[in-house]
Each structure stands twice: as structure tokens, then as C-alpha cells.
Amino acid sequence: MKTTFPQKLARGAVYALLLIVFCGPFWGILATAFSKTTVQPGQLLIWPDQPTFDHFIYAWTEVKAWIYLFNSLLVVAIGTVLQTTVSALAAYALARKKFRGAAFISLAILSTMMLPDEVISIPLYLILHQKLPLLGVSIYNSYAALILPLVGWAFSVFLLTEFMKAVPRDLEDAARVDGANEIQIFLKVIVPLVKPALGTTTIFGFLMIWDQYLLPLIAVDDRSLYTIPVVLRSLRVDEIMQQNIFIAVTVIATVPCIVVYLLLQKQFNRGLMSGAVKG
């Protein structure tokens, strides 16, 4: 069907509106972070005024954003790898293995999604303070405390379970007849076939870990272990800190998310789309 001019115009207007809604705020923080003009809290510049890198240099050297960025990157890198690995293995067991209590375990994992973080914060704080058996030390105030509570995530287990259920059982049987053991079946047959879902869960897992605010607050009290979201919050309430510097740190905090999304974009889109159409 041929599109008429008013239809094209209406479509263009909708696209423009969506662009403003989604990209406008990001453009605002970029323009403000690179401007010399000081802004008040809650204000953003639409166009850069006297472009400068000063706020970034200050954020990097004086605020020491690099420490928090490093902490965040370390936590998110190890956390995402562990979370994806654990989720994929758990999903494989739930999707492909028959064992007593499988339904109950699925339900138990799923039910953790219904609990808000605030509800589990006190028990989590107490657990993090518990001394580990044999070692006699607690993981409180360490990178482990920032990472380990995030390793099991019901959302990615659930998503991967559904994807793995869709892998034809004959492929698994064929691999078994071909001489593959359980690990080989998992790594060489199942994992390659759920790559799109793994891409999706990796991105969602990355963002979930990157955005953690409550956990670092209760897991560490050493400022040198703070992650970017915690520091952003402390800068936000710091009355003597210039708003532009806070915004520059915000830009720094956003960059890794954009990079990861761009790297995994193809997998992510395929993951979201798969199952939407026949074939």
C-alpha cells in the first residue's frame, strides 16, 4: 500500500517525539557536562555553552571517579559472567532434566522475583556479616559481598529455561549417541542454540548489576569499595559539589552501558524477537 504525504508527516512527527522523549535527556546531560556555564540542581542545558573538558578532568582527578568506575566495572564483569554461567546451568537442569522437586525449585526461584530488595536487605546484611565456615571470615566489606548476592537471578534463569525447553530433544539425544557427555552437550549443543537468549540475559544482567544501589550500601562501608551509583547519590546530595561535575560523572557512568549494548545489540535484538514469528 502506498503511503500518503500526511501519513508520512504523522509518522515523522511520532518518530521525532519518541526521539525527544528518549534521547532528549541524554543530550541534555551531554550538553551540560561539556559546558563551562554552571547550572543549578535540576537544570540541564539544551546547547553546550563554552565547551570544555574541565568537569570531566575534575571528576577523574579530584572526585576520583576512576576508582568507583573501576569498582563498578570489576563487580559488573565478574558478576555478569558468574550470573550468566549460574543461570545457564540452572536453566539447563530445570529445562532438560527430570528430577524430584523440579517444579517446586522453579517456583521457589521465580518467587524471589516477587520480593523487593528492601525486604531482603536486613537478612542480607546479617548474612554478609556471618563468618564463613572453615575460613572464619565474613565477606562483608569486600568485592565478594558486592558480587555474590547477585549471582543467582531468577529473571535470567527463567528466561533461559524457556529458551532451553525449546531446543529439540533429538539434538541432545543425537549428541549423546555421538559420544558427548553432559558438559559437552551443554557447551557444544545447548549453549550455541540459546546464544540470543544469553545475549539478552547478559545485557539485562549487566544493567541490573550496574544499577545496584542498595546492595553496595549494605555490603560495604569502605568508601574505596563504593560503586558508581552510590557515589552518584553522594555527589547529588553534596551541596558544595558543582552540578556540572555531578553530571560529568553521570556521563562517565553511562558510557559502559552504551558500549555493552552496542557490542551485544545483535544478540539482544535477536533474543527479544525470537519466537515472535513462525519458523
Partner: peptide, 8 residues
């Protein structure tokens, strides 16, 4: 196999 079961 009936479904061929080739690794895609």
C-alpha cells in the same frame, strides 16, 4: 533421527 537432528 526422524527430525534429522543435525546441529544447526
Amino acid at each position: 533421527f526422524q527430525t534429522y537432528a543435525l546441529y544447526p
